[in-house]
Nucleic acid binder design. Structure first.
Lengths: 123, 123
DNA sequence: ACTGAATATTCTCTGACTGGAATATTCGGG
DNA sequence: CCCGAATATTCCAGTCAGAGAATATTCAGT
C-alpha cells in the first residue's frame, strides 16, 4: 500500500461505496453486490483492483470470499476513511448503503444463514 | 471541486509535488518548472488539469501565470493537503522541492527580479 | 513590426481502466 | 459425478490520461 495506490483507488465512486461499507466490518462479495445493486463482475473487479493495490485483504470460506480493510494500514488511508463520513452530503448513497448493510445483517441473523456473517464470526 | 476530482488529481506524483509546492504560497509556472526540473509542457498540462478540476486557480500578470490553491476549498482537499507532510518518508523529493523553493525565492529577491515574487506581492 | 520569454495547446502513440457479456473456477450438496 | 451458488477471469470495445515533440499564443521591449 502506498499513497499513489490509495488515491487511485479512491477516485472511483463505486470503490468509495465499497470502502464505505467495509470500513464498518468485513463483507463477502455477494453482500456487497446486493447492497450496491451492481453487476457481479463489476463488483468483483473493483474488489480485486483494491486488493491488488493493497487496500483490501480477502479470505476464502467455503464458497464465499470475505473482503476487509488491509491490516497494515497507512496514514493517508486512515485519514481518508475518516473523510468518508464528511462526504455524506456529496454522496447521499453512502447513508443508503449503510442502512442496507444493517438491514442485510439483521436478515442474515434472523435466517441463521449459512453465509458467513462477519459481524458474528471472523474467518 | 468535488471529492472524485480531488482524488483524481492526487493520484499522480508530479501533481502531488506541485501541490506540495503551492500549499506554501502561489508560484508561477516557470518557478514550478524550474524546481521540479520537468519539461515545460508537462508542468503546464498538469497545472491545467488541476485547474480544470477546481483545485487550483490562476491569474495572469504580464507574461507570467501564477497558480495558487483554489479559494473555495473542500474538507477532503484540506485534509489531504495536511497529509502531504506525513508523506515525506514516502516522497523524499518533497523536502528537496521545498528547499529548492526557498532558495529560488531568495534568489529572486536578491536579483530584484521583475518576475512576480508571490511571497511579496499578491496579484 | 520583430524578437524572445513564458505559457498553452495540439498531435500522435501508448498504457491503463471500464463496462458488459460470456466463460471459467471452486466448492458443497444430493 | 452433476448441479447450482459464489466468485474470478477473459475478451472486446471505448474512454481517459500520460509522454514527447512541435506549434501556437501572449506580451514586453526594442
Amino acid at each position: 500500500m502506498n499513497t499513489i495506490s490509495i488515491y487511485k483507488c479512491l477516485c472511483d465512486p463505486i470503490r468509495l461505496r465499497i470502502l464505505n461499507l467495509v470500513k464498518d466490518g468485513p463483507l463477502c462479495v455477494c453482500h456487497i453486490q446486493e447492497i450496491l445493486e451492481e453487476p457481479q463482475a463489476k463488483v468483483s473487479k473493483q474488489l480485486t483492483y483494491m486488493k491488488n493495490h493493497g487496500l483490501l485483504e480477502s479470505s476464502r470460506c467455503c464458497n464465499w470470499t470475505v473482503y476487509r480493510l488491509a491490516e497494515a494500514s497507512h496514514p493517508v488511508f486512515e485519514s481518508n476513511l475518516k473523510c468518508l463520513q464528511d462526504c455524506q452530503g456529496e454522496f447521499p448513497v453512502f447513508k443508503v448503503d449503510l442502512a442496507a448493510r444493517r438491514k442485510l445483517i439483521l436478515r442474515l441473523k434472523k435466517e441463521e444463514s449459512s453465509c458467513p456473517i462477519p459481524e458474528l464470526t471472523r474467518w
